[in-house]
Design a protein around this nucleic acid. Structure first.
Length: 769
RNA sequence: GGGCGCUUAACUCAGUGGUCAGAGUGCUUCCUUUACACGGAAGAAGUCGGGGGUUCAAAUCCCUCAGCGCCCACCA
């Protein structure tokens, strides 16, 4: 057979991937039985059942766009492990999938619509969701194509999406479970309100960015109080000082008479002073050093103030509405103004009335929406919350007991620190794209609730039940058509279920108690064709690979959700990989124009070169400043291996290959080296030292196998030399396969005189030392 | 305000106590030898961020300073 002088990835990759798909070996049930070590008999079904499993959990990419280099690195590293494990004889499962990415995806589609001059409200919920599903179809498929292009050996028969029907069942089940556990409650608290998204968002979705502002020193009776947001003055219900602040101790727990603006005077008339009384309270959250040491407390419009208010029984007065306009509580004078206008007007009025001491320039942090960058308005709002106390304990326990290990281990520190000071998690969103809350309201508010132990809760005149399906009859008034909550869940609520929801949970979960509405939940105990469900067979998983930026958003929440709902940790190892930066150390991002499309790189250098180049830079500690130099290295190395193979194949022209991979009868020292390289590489991959493993292989194959042994072999033609060449090549192909799957598979096929979907390198046994 | 990471050849990075400090890319010289010029042979190139300390021995451990980057935090 005539082989091209240089390796041409373009004629190989797609063809090989199709062969892998044909082989069916990405599906664990199709893996060939493997003889267990030290067993002479051929593997039986029984032996197979004893075979160890390796299950890895994907970080499902968001359908917000195509994959970037960070995904490429992550998927490559995961695939390296999966391929090695599969060759080592593990029954290997990798479930691929994508995430609906609630707020992120909705915003992108809204932007698309904006180009057509349409708002989501113009379309209505149903039509808008149709657009969302079209988007999902398009980008979901694009992402799947990219997975395949990257050589990912995931089981396509098990493709999952976080809004699949079965997944929706899991989400409802989880919500109900948490509600019954009393971890979820509906409450009125200050939340981060994004006026553009028209939704609340969680604390983790707010970015604090420095901004130049003003600090206003305002007279409050005998005191001066510093604030950056004078417009919230209308919502003040108290003054607070630190408990140990001696300056104000005579005023503590007294009503202080302060001047404020009479907000019922119409805006076209000059402002007038109105006297009101505010209680002076103490709270240890107050910083004595800041300003004058006195804080005005606005419980309805500040997270901290809300908590101070709770601790001290202060009133909450809402003065700003969801559209960031001043509402009726702000009085005739300001009602209807945008907050910015209200601030200007109030400052002007205060100045006119001589109530402003001074105004200083002040740089401080402003909260902005992670998704659309709008300024966040803290707002008192009725939302659903997730109590973090017990989940926090579970999440800590998983790490403290060593049931879950971080790699690198240092990530356990920020993980623990983050858990220490947590507010309850706001899980409801006023969006359309996502899992609608399984909450049904009675339309008849006057319904009486007789059975207090029922699931029916009276909450500010709202009567609701939690139910997986819409009840046929309202269990509250027996009369109305119940109305489902229009809110959807935070996307991370559903992502938190990923490791087990994708395996079919809760189909095999223990039955939970029937709910009060009389509908026992028939989702439990659904019949299964197989003797065991995927959940029983493959859960918990062994490994998750993740970028660090979703450590809190996702990893933490999967851990406590898994521990509570399945009573098991969802994975044993967490691999946190490096972040891929630009060559200048900048964040890669589409909006900055610094993003790189991996497909351009696979086109130019080949997937194997890309994988090898990324892996050889994937050290534990340091982020990757991505330059194409390493891909050039990868490409040259691929070509080198190609030519090594050509040489050995030519040399072996009339010989039969020993595909059983037996050690040749030779004492040549290169064989010992091959042996120790095998041990090193295996250990390095098992310890997630991908860069070391790649470099070990590179150095051995190029500078020892090729430069030394092959050169030496050129003037020899004996059996021993040929056997050794064949052995070295075969071993190298196997060890390199996780990094360069396409090329090695191609060569393996050529050696056999043609690729054979039944006997692929993919499932050959990993070399042992 | 806390915490983490980084600072090694022109560039991107390995190297975490022990021979003259390594790789890829780039550069210089030679070699178009029948696997590969995406190659081979040889070579130049670094006060291992600054300073101090521990040690027989430090890029490697400790302290300190400086710069860069990231994360967390209720400075109104």
């Amino acid at each position: 057979m005539e082989l091209e002088k240089t390796y041409n990835h373009k004629s190989v990759e797609d063809r090989i991937y199709k062969l892998w798909e044909e082989s069916g070996f990405f599906t664990p049930e199709n893996l060939p039985p493997r003889q267990n070590q030290n067993e002479q008999k051929p593997a039986s079904a029984e032996a197979m059942a004893r075979q160890r499993k390796f299950v890895t959990c994907i970080a499902p990419p968001n359908i917000t766009g195509e994959l970037h280099l960070g995904h490429t690195l992550q998927l490559t590293l995961q695939d390296i492990i999966v391929r090695m494990k599969r060759m080592q004889g593990y029954i290997t499962l990798w479930v691929p999938g994508i995430d609906h990415a609630g707020i992120g995806a909705q915003n992108i589609v809204e932007k698309q619509l904006a180009k057509e001059g349409i708002k989501r409200q113009d379309l209505g919920r149903e039509k808008f969701l149709e657009r969302m599903w079209q988007w999902k179809e398009k980008y979901g498929n694009a992402i799947m194509d990219q997975f395949k292009k990257l050589g990912i050996s995931a089981d396509w028969t098990r493709l999952r999406f976080t809004m699949d029907d079965q997944y929706q069942e899991a989400v409802k089940k989880a919500f109900q479970h948490f509600y019954e556990k009393d971890w979820i409650y509906k409450g009125e608290r200050v939340v981060n309100w994004c006026p553009r998204c028209a939704s609340s968002i969680s604390d983790l979705e707010v970015n604090y960015v420095p901004e130049a502002g003003k600090l206003y020193f305002i007279k409050y009776g005998p005191f001066i109080v510093a604030t950056t947001r004078p417009e919230t003055r209308l919502g003040d219900t108290g003054l607070a000082v630190h408990p140990e602040d001696a300056r104000y101790k005579n005023y503590v727990n007294k009503e202080i008479e302060v001047e404020t603006i009479d907000n019922e005077i119409p805006a076209d008339q000059p402002p007038k002073i109105k006297k009101i009384k505010l209680p002076m309270i103490t709270d240890s959250s107050v910083d004595k050093e800041f300003g004058t040491g006195i804080v005005k407390v606005t419980p309805a419009h500040d997270l901290t103030d809300f908590e101070i208010g709770q601790r001290n029984n202060l009133l909450s007065i809402i003065v700003i509405d969801e559209h960031t306009r001043m509402n009726e509580n702000s009085g005739l004078r300001y009602r209807g103004l945008k907050t910015k206008e209200a601030r200007e007007q109030i400052v002007k009025d205060l100045e006119t009335l001589g109530l402003i001491e001074k105004i200083e320039n002040y740089n401080h942090n402003i909260g902005r929406c992670d998704r659309c960058n709008s300024v966040i308005e803290p707002l008192l709002s009725k939302q659903w919350f997730f109590k973090m106390e017990t989940p926090k304990q579970l999440a800590l326990e998983a790490i403290d007991t060593g049931q879950i290990k971080f790699h690198p281990a240092r990530w356990a520190t920020p993980y623990r620190d983050w858990l220490k000071n947590l507010r309850d998690w706001n899980i409801s969103r006023q969006l359309w794209w996502g899992h609608q809350l399984p909450v049904y309201f009675c339309k008849n508010k006057l319904a009486e609730v007789k059975n207090q132990k029922s699931k029916v809760k009276n909450n500010n005149e709202e009567f609701f039940i939690i139910s997986e399906n819409k009840p046929k009859q309202c269990p509250i008034c027996k009369d109305c058509e119940m109305r489902q909550s229009e809110d959807v869940l935070d996307t991370w609520f559903s992502s938190a279920l990923w490791p087990f929801a994708t395996l079919g949970w809760p189909t095999s979960a223990p039955p939970s108690s029937a709910t009060s509405d009389g509908h026992s939940k028939a989702t439990v105990g659904k019949p299964n064709k197989k003797t065991k469900s995927d959940f029983e067979e493959y859960y918990p998983t062994d490994l998750i690979v993740s970028a660090r930026d979703i450590l809190y958003l996702w990893i933490v929440r999967m851990i406590f959700s898994g521990m509570e709902l399945t009573k098991k940790v969802p994975f044993k190892d967490i691999l946190i990989h490096a972040t891929v930066l630009t060559k200048d150390g900048k964040r890669m991002s589409k909006s900055l124009g610094t993003g790189i499309n991996p497909l351009e790189l696979t086109e130019k250098y080949g997937t194997d070169a890309l994988r090898f180049g990324l892996a050889s830079q994937a050290s534990e500690l340091q982020d990757i400043r991505f330059g194409e130099d390493t891909l050039i290295m990868g490409k040259k190395f691929a070509n080198k291996l190609w030519n090594i193979s050509r040489y050995v194949i030519t040399k072996m022209k009339h010989e039969t290959w020993n595909m059983e991979h037996q050690l040749p009868n030779s004492k040549h020292p290169i064989l010992q080296r091959m042996n120790s390289v095998t041990a090193e590489v295996t250990e390095q991959i098992e310890n997630y030292n991908f860069a070391e493993a790649a470099n070990t292989l590179y150095r051995f194959i190029w500078h020892e196998f090729a430069d030394k042994y092959i050169e030496e072999s050129k003037n020899k033609d004996d059996q021993e030399t040929k056997d050794t060449l064949a052995y070295l090549l075969l071993t190298s192909l196997k060890l390199l396969h996780p990094f360069m799957p396409f090329l090695t598979e191609e060569i393996y096929g050529i050696i056999q005189g043609g690729a054979n979907p039944k006997n692929m390198l993919l499932v050959q046994s990993w070399p042992t030392s």
